[in-house]
Amino acid sequence: MDHLLNVVNVSVSLQKKEILHDISFSLDPGSILMLVGPNGAGKSTLLSAISGSLPFEGSVEIKGKNIRSLSRQQIARSMGLLMQRNSGSFDYTVEDIVRLGRYASRTHPFSRSGSSDEKVLQAMEITGVDSLRSHSMRTLSGGELQRAFLAQVFAQDPDILLLDEPANHLDFLYQKDIFALIDRWRREPSKAVLCVVHDLALARKYADRVLLLHHGQCAALGTPASVFTRDRLQEIYGMDVHAWMQALYAQWEEPDPEL
């Protein structure tokens, strides 16, 4: 059977410099793969290449079909991307944004998204932006804006969700909400998630598998426990990551009632 997403030997060069070298992995329904690695390892670049916004060598297949043979609309029907940062220069409402998620499903240019109202409402509901539906995107906080665009991707109803640091710059509450949403979403039939994260603790908690990138190469691919070995992280991050994590989180374990 074909994988939901199959990435084979993908390399990306920008201005004659190779940013990514021979990355291969696949994604099956129900799974969540996280891309991790130090700054500049090529995580976001890989995501851009897969989503088709950067030229690359190698091949990316969605359900057995090469992405190069698909139209943008076909790609958008099976793959949705939440960008790291979204901003707007006009006063579009949250509902306008979410409704655009239905663009890929329209059958002809005259059909406006009327028939798919339900998906739009549903998407706004599960992301909790339905109370903001007529608010201008310029009045939203970073977290609200990010959730509005998450609602857009949900309304798009793709099989594969690509996320570029979805909770970056966000409060813990939003972070928790967003990852809980994503985790619930991927349990629906034939859905999978590919997500770039910085925070190894998040990867450890939510990922089935992680792909550790280092200088544009795949350093390791497997379950979080098997990839995040002390020696490997030491080598790649240039520091004892385990000790640092323990130092960071140890103090939170048992709050001292005296304090």
């Binding site: 960008m83 006009f90 798009q156």
Partner: peptide, 18 residues
Amino acid sequence: EELNAFAISEENALHIGV
């Protein structure tokens, strides 16, 4: 509809299938 997508962001327009 495409113009709306562009007005929000060109990159976003690409990803929703424009």
